[in-house]
Design a protein around this nucleic acid. Structure first.
Length: 353
DNA sequence: AACCAAGTCAACCGCTTACTA
DNA sequence: TTAGTAAGCGGTTGACTTGGT
């Protein structure tokens, strides 16, 4: 497959278009249609490459282009379509008359993606983020709370805290997996596979596990984990943990179509879900009171493919939001990107297993 | 008023795909 | 079947704008 010659090889103009150039292009296409884009610039008398002309026309000069702010309805449509199609901007654009793929892409990158991240959702999978980095703000906040403590204590406490948050998230992951698993209903896209593989736990199996008690009782003396719990498990905004516990009915846990309203309305439902399952972790015996041997449902420490990636997007650079994510389900990533070894070495894991 | 950082968006780059000879 | 061309597409860049200090 050959590639088109680069447009600047012949000293053709690049950069922003002038109103005069726009007018020439519009006039020509009005009269003759665009025909061959490659031939158009010469025929129209423009010192531009055909590619540049095509982009200028399709992204800006086309008469049917709608300009201005995206409406709420358009925003919801983009979110919905993106959850299905991923970064297929042109496909999304076909459902929004008058909007170009470029415009939608820009709107996504500058508004919607940030919105999802702020709400604790992974903008690529539209799922609640399960990585530790999603809780970084909480950790930083905790660090601030500890500012009055001696520095050496500070570092140690932060490490302890990070490990505890990881524990909490792992438990939430188990809980989440138990709600997700449905062997008769495959996940709609490859993006979601690693969330559902082999975690065939059901709530009955974990039925006696009290997550909130666990959080409280495992708190270090120096940290008020009740506050963290309130912030991360039950607060309404910018919070990944509460969304982790959100019992989404369609088993996909994707950001719903009208996600904002949905999240706002369902915080009580989240709490209810936790309470109604009546978890009760038997700390003294270091085991669940369920007859199930939990070892059977825990992934092997060396079998990280059972676990969600720690950070699918949060630690990536700009390139990380590329569409390649849509074809990368994370399963082939190195194990280093999954739950850290130290987590499995924690006595907590030994306690459970 | 000047500076800086963050946000926005038009345009470009380069890869992929479809088509054709 | 192969290679060349054109067009489509998504990621990235950089100029410009805006808001804060």
């Amino acid at each position: 497959m050959g590639r088109s010659p680069c447009c600047d090889e012949n000293g053709l103009k690049k950069g922003p278009w002038t109103p005069e150039e726009d007018q020439i292009l519009v006039d020509y296409i009005d009269k003759h249609g665009h025909g061959s884009w490659r031939a158009l610039p010469k025929l129209a008398g423009l010192n531009r490459c055909g590619k540049s002309c095509r982009l200028r026309w399709t992204n800006y000069l086309r008469p049917d282009i709608k300009r201005g702010k995206f409406s709420e309805e358009e925003e919801q449509t983009i979110l919905h379509l993106h959850s299905i199609l991923g970064n297929k901007w042109s496909a999304i654009a076909t459902h929004l008359s008058g909007r170009t793929d470029n415009e939608i892409k820009n709107f996504w990158n500058t508004h919607l993606k940030k919105k999802l991240i702020q709400m604790g959702y992974d903008p690529m999978t539209h799922k609640p983020r399960t990585d530790l980095f999603a809780n970084l703000p909480n950790i930083i906040a905790l660090a601030n709370l500890l500012q009055h403590h001696p520095l050496e204590d500070h570092a140690v406490r932060l490490q302890v805290q990070a490990a505890q948050l990881a524990k909490i998230q792992y438990l939430q992951f188990l809980f989440q997996s138990s709600n997700n698993y449905n062997p008769t209903q495959p996940t709609p896209s490859s993006n979601t596979q690693h969330y559902n593989n082999n975690n065939n736990i059901n709530l009955g199996d974990l039925g006696a596990f009290n997550l909130t008690n666990f959080v409280k009782e495992n708190s270090t003396p120096s940290l008020n984990l009740s506050n963290i719990e309130n912030q991360t498990l039950f607060s309404n905004e910018n919070n990944s943990c509460s969304q982790l516990l959100h019992n989404n009915q369609d088993n996909t846990q994707q950001v719903p179509f009208n996600f904002q309203t949905h999240l706002n309305n369902n915080i009580n439902e989240i709490s209810d879900n936790i309470n109604c399952h009546n978890f009760n972790f038997d700390q003294e015996n270091n085991s669940t009171s369920s007859p199930l041997n939990i070892t059977n449902i825990l992934p092997s420490p060396h079998s990280s493919s059972h676990l969600p990636p720690l950070a699918e997007i949060s630690i990536s650079n700009n390139q990380g939001d590329s569409s390649s994510n849509s074809t990368n389900n994370g399963a082939d990533q190195g194990s280093s990107s999954y739950w850290p070894e130290l987590f499995f070495e924690e006595h907590f894991m030994h306690d459970i297993s």
